[in-house]
Design a protein around this nucleic acid. Structure first.
Length: 425
DNA sequence: TCTGGGGTCCTAGGACCC
DNA sequence: TCTGGGGTCCTAGGACCC
């Protein structure tokens, strides 16, 4: 039997409660005691809810049109996603945690794993101090779960939140405790088990995390693959899931979005795609990479009325990062998939076959002069300073028809001087 | 006319996460 | 009528090689 509090390596998962809602409330005291829901891009569906709205039974991903009237009646305050604000709040959150642990592994915009090796004192008390510091410094409430594996830490965090544990911290402290927790955790709540797997598990009589952890490993491995085996081992207390560092170069870069309204015009589609090419180029430049392939996808309505995605790609030889070249490739792809008179609702640009710029083989017959090199940096710098889309390549017609709908957007409190919150005494 | 087996690489698709 | 976006990992299957 393991004695959990003597485990030399402990992992704490700290995450912000209802992160998007908490970010919105941080700078707007008028909604601090009101029910709040945050919408996805284009105000399409509900992606974040405060506790009150959750209690009303509104599920994650509910289409906005289904709840609009209900929200009005119940006084729920809607907000469009404000990613500039959330990104900034996320940085503040992580910076706060770094005051309490030298090894913070950011996992998503609102959660981080904190690694403690051979921590001598009372770790739960230490994490409670971190939780209250985050609240004090960012005004956002958060919770922590502590255990020897990431999956168990996630489970503890779940209970810290749902049981309203005092101090917001729950540490796994004995084998008996592990069993009790896992028996109360529905299998679908386990980190790594989504709705599909949960359904298949339940058909086999596996209903709780405990059931999963004591299932026959070789059988499960054969039926569900190595990912499920890892999850099982983690539930049993053996760490075996590693995360790729956040700053590691990506294997693929995607920029895509639904339009604010349906588009049928080639130039309007190209304007949206040009925007995605520029965003993708910025990400590519940030990791000093070059792309070997560019894929353009359009989601359009087919005669039956259904939405279907069509893609075309261009191979880039040699692999490159020049916006002009990528833009030309994207235009060629768009010509290939574009159908006259068809309605489109979404476009995306994907860069794949990425390589490090410094390791790229150059083309013996490459006639380029090296002039492209500076263009990407220059465009990125101008757009960074004056706002997205202020400068585009000459071949693209300006159009903002594709711009997304954000009817309930809060101000850029933290990233634009003209929108700083004001206070009267 | 008969025609193996193992390895690698690539791609598409599925499932998951937030 | 109206349902997000960006990423990861794994697997299966096909093409190709010797």
């Amino acid at each position: 039997m393991k004695c959990w509090d003597l485990e030399p390596n402990q992992i704490a998962l700290v995450d912000v409660n209802n992160f998007y809602v908490s970010s919105e409330r941080a700078f707007d005291p008028t909604i601090r005691h009101k029910p709040v829901a945050v919408y996805s891009n284009n105000d399409g569906c509900v992606i974040a809810r405060c506790a009150e709205v959750k209690a009303m039974g509104v599920k994650m991903g509910t289409p906005v049109f289904e709840v609009r009237k209900f929200f009005r009646e119940r006084g729920v305050v809607p907000r469009s996603s404000n990613y500039e604000l959330y990104h900034d709040m996320s940085c503040r959150f992580t910076a706060s945690l770094e005051q309490f642990c030298p090894d913070v592994e950011q996992y998503s915009i609102d959660e981080s794993f904190l690694h403690f090796r051979g921590f001598g004192e009372d770790l739960a008390a230490h994490c409670q101090r971190a939780v209250s510091a985050v609240h004090k410094w960012t005004s956002m409430p958060c919770c922590a779960g502590i255990a020897p594996t990431r999956t168990l830490a996630k489970a503890c965090n779940h209970f810290a939140k749902t049981l309203g544990v005092s101090g917001g911290v729950l540490q796994l402290n004995s084998e008996y405790h592990r069993q009790q927790l896992l028996k109360q955790l529905p299998v679908g709540e386990v980190w790594g088990v989504g709705s599909r797997l949960a359904e298949r598990f339940e058909a086999l009589g596996i209903e709780t995390a405990w059931d999963l952890s004591v299932s026959h490993m070789p059988t499960m491995r054969k039926a569900f693959g190595v990912t499920v085996e890892r999850t099982m081992r983690e539930l049993q207390g053996t760490p075996c899931i590693e995360l790729a560092p956040l700053d590691q170069a990506k294997n693929e870069i995607v920029s895509g979005r639904m339009f604010g309204k349906l588009l049928t015009d080639f130039d309007a589609l190209m304007a949206s795609i040009a925007n995605h090419v520029m965003l993708a180029c910025e990400k590519l430049a940030a990791q000093k990479g070059v792309a070997g392939r560019l894929v353009v996808s359009l989601q359009g309505r087919v005669p039956g009325g259904e939405w279907r995605e069509q893609s075309a790609y261009t191979a880039l030889r040699p692999a490159c990062d020049a916006p002009q070249v990528l833009m030309k490739a994207a235009r060629a792809c768009l010509r290939e998939v574009f159908g006259c008179g068809r309605e489109y609702r979404r476009a995306s640009v994907m860069l794949t076959a990425l390589e490090e710029a410094s390791e790229t083989q150059s083309d013996l017959f490459d006639a380029s002069t090296g002039m492209e090199a500076g263009v990407a940096d220059c465009l990125a710098a101008i757009n960074h300073r004056f706002g997205r889309g202020k400068v585009v390549l000459g071949s693209v017609k300006l159009s903002d028809e594709w711009v997304m709908k954000r009817d309930f957007l809060s101000p850029a409190y933290t990233s634009d001087f003209s929108q700083l919150p004001s206070a009267r005494v």
